[in-house]
Nucleic acid binder design. Structure first.
Length: 255
DNA sequence: ATGACTCCCAGTGGGAGA
């Protein structure tokens, strides 16, 4: 079983690439972020023709998440229960007995902004809910665009980024608290090349210079860890003519 | 370097992203 995540930065713009990628990679589940489409405009038929069911939760202009799956999507949950949120940032479903939680963490803008306070509150709510979900379904995957670079080795220039958004001690502490629930960073469960990123700024020829951050993650519960076979970032997508600024991350399981 | 790019909604510019 192959489970992947990809921030597509507008599904309207990226739909042809997503369809091509599904065809090439044949993931069982693909979690999308920043779809930026309302539910009435979600391209459900195009995915169905490609062999994928979908569950989606979007809004105009910003945010928006969706799950594509070759298998039935059960117990679909949109946004964090009990957390009043005007932004579409989470969708979860159970696929083959695995709870799959697709998240688009708030960006946070800068540590002194209201958006940063919102990010921290959102993280509190997410952690509490994921803890409860783990009790209910121990086989769980939490994946998506976390907008957190967990360690200095996940940042191309850790000195320049020290204390900046994505790299603040508060955000990194939250990431560690998520791991503390009984989750493993799938990418770091295997040997990886140094300077592995999942996002590169569109500006400054950042991709060509390999100046990026690793902020897209797949966290796997301890109950599912024995089945985890591999985890990788697909950099080839960034070489498209009109790429997303994020690359897909893929985890493979013996399931 | 106060920037650079891309997307969106807009409308001949500006906000947001990360």
């Amino acid at each position: 079983m192959k489970i992947a995540t990809w921030n597509v930065n507008s599904l309207t713009v990226r739909l042809p690439q997503v369809l091509d990628w599904l065809q090439a990679q044949q993931p069982d589940v693909l979690a999308l972020q920043e779809t930026k489409v309302t539910d009435d405009k979600f391209p459900q038929d195009a995915f169905e023709a490609a062999g994928y069911r979908s569950a989606f939760f979007g809004q105009r202009t910003y945010n928006g998440v969706a799950l594509l799956s070759r298998h039935p999507l059960e117990s679909v949950q949109r946004n964090i229960p009990g957390f009043d949120d005007a932004q579409a940032r989470m969708i979860a479903a159970t696929v083959g007995g695995v709870r799959v939680i697709d998240t688009y963490f708030p960006n946070g803008q800068s540590p002194d902004s209201d958006k940063f306070a919102y990010k921290l509150h959102w993280l509190d709510a997410l952690r509490a809910w994921v803890a409860a979900e783990l009790q209910h379904t121990p086989r769980l995957v939490l994946l998506g665009d976390f907008n957190i670079a967990p360690e200095d080795r996940d940042v191309y220039d850790p000195v320049a980024w020290a204390g900046q958004i994505h790299c603040t001690p508060q955000e990194r502490a939250h990431f560690q608290q998520l791991l503390g629930l009984g989750l493993i960073d799938a990418f770091r469960a295997f040997e990886q090349a140094p300077k592995s990123w999942s996002w590169w700024d569109y500006r400054n020829l950042a991709f060509r210079k390999n100046q990026g951050l690793r902020i897209d993650h797949i966290l796997v519960s301890t109950a599912l860890r024995p089945a985890l076979l591999a985890c990788s970032i697909d950099k080839t997508q960034r070489k498209n003519e009109r790429p997303s600024d994020h690359a897909p991350v893929i985890a493979e399981f013996a399931l």
